[in-house]
Amino acid sequence: MASKTGNKIAFCAFFLATFSCALGLVFCMVKSPQAKSAAYMAAAVEASSLNRSEDAAAAALASVRLNPANHQNWRVLSQMLRASGRAEAAVQAHKIALRLQQGPAAVSPVYAMPAEFRLSQLVEAERKIP
């Protein structure tokens, strides 16, 4: 009886370890939206330097979709959109960048900011600008 209980516990413990190992392996390969956003932005800058303005604008747009709290990404997007001939959208992106820049995002360190807080900065930026 005691041996059966011990076997069950050992099985549960092995299951927990295996499950965690598999999940951990998956998460070693998954990147956060913030990291993906930075990668897209790098691709946008690269495409821009090769004069592929449409690709650059598309990559910059993907970057701001993934991390809309970063005002620098919005600023770059604005430039990319202007280069690809979409002046109206570029102006709107520039306005959003200005709003975010006046919010607290620029001065807040990354470590104390879970995703929800980063997103909530958008609300704060909206409030401060009449």
Partner: peptide
């Protein structure tokens, strides 16, 4: 920050082993 996304996954694998 976001450059070290792998840390939590790594810790899970590390402790599971």
């Amino acid at each position: 920050g976001a450059d070290a996304d792998w840390v939590f996954g790594f810790l899970a694998v590390f402790w599971s082993l």
